[in-house]
Amino acid sequence: MPLFDFTFGLGILDAITSSAGFMVVAKNFTYFLGGAWYTLFITALSVAMGMVLGLFAGLGKLSKNKIIYGISTAYIDFFRGTPLFVQIFLLYFGILPLFYDNDSLSSAIIALGLNSGAYIAEILRAGIQAIDKGQMEAARSLGMNERQAMVLVILPQAFKVVIPPLINEFIALLKDSSLVSAITVAELMHRGDLVFANTYQATWVFGTISILYLVMTKTISLLGDYAERRLATE
């Protein structure tokens, strides 16, 4: 008896590659890759929007101005306190049509951006508050105004503190972007759903989709580790 039956191994491989599920995945793989690309695109734009909104809302929550504080708090509370799925439907079918002839892609990005902005605001606020208050005092004592001290001294330090939670948020957002398949954005989940509906190969189709999501989220987390190492002042 040989140590490893090579023909047996080939037999399994053969069985797999000739299975119906594999054929479905192989036939649609570039279609899925296109969906993954779509997912990345949506996530990137939503994250960019979320970062800008989050910075303003996060600083707004630290503001002594009651109106700015109130608006920021209301925004954060709403988008953290209601389901993203509901927000997507509310914006796509309800609110955005009042402003423009909205399509599903831009609506999806706006919904995800608004949602992640609320989470990023809280992350940035916590990061800013984690910086020792002596830093602000030292900056002010050198003659910086509050904005200069924030931009030159506090935010660069806060940014370093918030990298791990921000990476978490980016990963969560990328995964949550699958929800916009419900408003027919042709991203990864939506394409998986379409192929599944035609083939019923649930394990093969959603297994492949899962792996593609995993590759994307793992890449983000590795990039985060790299950024963290680069910014370490050692």
């Binding site: 020792d132 002596g134 830093q135 005092e137 030292a138 900056a139 002010r140 004592s141 050198l142 003659g143 001294v153 660069p156 330090q157 370093k160 002042t233």
Partner: peptide, 17 residues
């Protein structure tokens, strides 16, 4: 005015970055 008044703190408060 603060630009004309230097301040040194007990805990230094150097900018770590």
């Amino acid at each position: 005015i603060r630009q004309q008044v230097g301040m040194v703190f007990q805990l230094f408060n150097l900018f770590p970055h």
